[in-house]
Amino acid sequence: MVPAALLVAWFFGARWIDQPWLYPSPVRVADQLAHPLRDHFGLGSLADNTLISLVRVLIGFTLAALLGVTLGLGLGCVSALRGLFEPLVEILRPLCPIAWLPFAIAVFKLQTLPQLFGVAHSRTIFDHVQLGMIFILFWGGFFPIFTCTLDGVRGVRRNYLSLARMLGAGPWQRFLHVFLPASLPMILTGFRQGLGLCWFVIIAAEMLPGSDSGIGYLLLYAADLCAMDVVIASMVIIGVIGALLNFTMRATMQAFLRWHGKEI
């Protein structure tokens, strides 16, 4: 109801103002969305650029997930390590991932993922995956995943550990059969938050120097050329993809964890 009303208001508002280069009609935006393979300004289509952004995000997120979970589990189980890393974590956590950009460009230049493996041009989508972007995405995804995992491990009820111990579980078995499953809900919550934040960060990162593609880049490029229909179409895509990522993560969680939220 509300979206429909907004759409109608937008339609008539745009017609009344009659400056389509600034306030395009929803019909023109819908036309762009209906033709996702149409090339824009030689930068590729909406679909191409969305895919590029998604691939970047998935690679950065995977890296963040691997390190976040490993460090979260490690620091959660070994309190001595925790004291060692805590000050560092507290300083790095509030740092906006975008603030790493100059550093990322200084270190990685514009090197792409295939170039890391000695391939100058792989002629695949990975030619658009710059190491600097991955680095920034990593910082976006790492902290929610790390923090959630750490909290998950530290929140494991001592009773479960005592029970496991009494049933003959050694330290490694307690890790595998108690710490890990008991903190899995929190780890997956971290994944959901981390993936959402990565999607947030990539759009911003693509608008900054050093970028040449991606849905965020296309959005800003179109804005410079006053192609507001493409801008708004990009915004719609960014929102929908974000919602889909969130929904997928939540569904995965529910499928995995029938017992979650029902601790006894």
């Binding site: 009773n159 029970l163 499953p181 017992w259």
Partner: peptide, 16 residues
């Protein structure tokens, strides 16, 4: 390690 078992009042089972 293998001669004892323990039944607690609460949290006696692994919920997962």
């Amino acid at each position: 390690e293998d001669g004892l078992a323990y039944v607690f009042q609460h949290y006696t089972l692994f919920p997962w």
